[in-house]
Design a binder for these strands. Sequence first.
RNA 1: GGAGGGAUGGCCGAGCGGCCGAAGGCGACGGUCUUGAAAACCGUUGAGGCGGUACCCCCGUCUCCGUGGGUUCAAAUCCCACUCCCUCCGCCA
Length: 435
Amino acid sequence: MIDPQLLRDNPELLKDSARRRGEDEHVIDELLAVDQRKRAAQTHYDELRAQQKILSKQIGPLQGRSRKDPTNEDVRAQLDELMLTAGVLAEQVKAADAQTGSLTSALKALWLQVSNVVDPRSPVGGEEDFVVVSTHGTPRDFTTEGFTPRDHLELGGLLGAIDVERAAKVSGSRFFYLTGIGALLELALLNMAIAQATRYGFIPVVPPVLVNSPAMEGTGFLGQAAENVYRLDADDAYLVGTAEVPLAAMHADEILDAEALPMRYVGWSTCFRREAGSHGKDTRGIIRVHQFDKVEMFVFTTPDEADAEHKRLLAWEQEFMDALEIPYRVIDVATGDLGSSAARKFDIEAWIPTQGTYREVTSTSNTTQFQARRLGIRTRKDGAPAPIATLNGTLCAMPRMIVAILENHQQVDGSIYVPEALRGYLGQDVLAVRP
RNA sequence: GGAGGGAUGGCCGAGCGGCCGAAGGCGACGGUCUUGAAAACCGUUGAGGCGGUACCCCCGUCUCCGUGGGUUCAAAUCCCACUCCCUCCGCCA
């Protein structure tokens, strides 16, 4: 949600943002109109209600007098008249209440359709209109090395690390088993990621992955993204697509101590994604799957600090990539591909040799006040409640990081070079092919 | 799954259907006192909407006592449903 004051003061800003995202700007006009009607209705209700309170307060004492002196016709008459007026007023109050009630829900429904205001620096356009911020490391030249690289699935087979065929038997397409060294690799990455994050003061969290609708809605995943969310109908619950959801919602409806900011959490969770609308995309291997584990950084900070924190999150993501010695580039994601919550987003794309291109492995978003407002998370500034900003960033999405490691660090015999930083966590310096 | 108890302000905890946004205590903040601190004493101390001046202060008004309905001129207080928490029993981990 966006500051409602911004809507009234500067609706053009919201419209401009919607245009940049390629979203319907008409909603803003509608919002403006309903907002005004709602406020008028509210005022009307308030006035009626104030009158009602005044009348109601007179009834009590009058009833007292009437009881003490039942023969007094005058008091009796006054009371009857008062009750009559109050009765009429009560009807009006009820009607006015219903009116504001329906306008309030209409307003809320409209607000839920509005995405965050984009950062003016975000490149305008669709998915392909990103801007490359920087490139790091050099992709290997397998031609010079004299062999054709195997893709991660083939390597996973040789290593006994990945099994998608049996996963298909058990769960369907887009599922996988990590077995043997594959499972160990995930655990090593997990420990390495958590170690890095805690070194920088992040509080490690293992969150719930089954959440209720306020949590899902508050983080902005029930809008356009809803089709990618698993919903458990019988329980009105949702499986999260990222730890961002339970981490953000953890402090819902709280006023956070300003002294404690920034509050940095690193969550480890399983993530579930329906991948609706991506039929035929990345059907091979474990690049796009319905279920995977991920280590996610999440920060609550002041709006002033959000931009600087965003850069820090990116730097921490890069540090992790650097440590794994994977060539990558950083892109500034275009407005049409931000998702409803983010004002600005950087993706890190790892080089994937067998695809001859860079593919997203991690991502960091500045969601400014958008999620915090929806979730009712605030801080206190000069004694008064003040808005807060939230940010998130992937430290390590397991399947894609495993893909990047296997493919980039493969050797001619199918074994895998283990980057030095990972060795301590894995306990070996090469992943050997199964005999 | 069965039986019972509970949900009130940062925390604890009172609250005959009207005088309750809510006693009292704790905590926090400000002040008096003190060389300083503690103690004692005095005072302040929830959030949100709308309006007056459309930044803040201030003032007015409405809303909020787990959530949603209902009864009533009037609901923290009565009724119904739901959610969550606690205790006990059973079952599964």
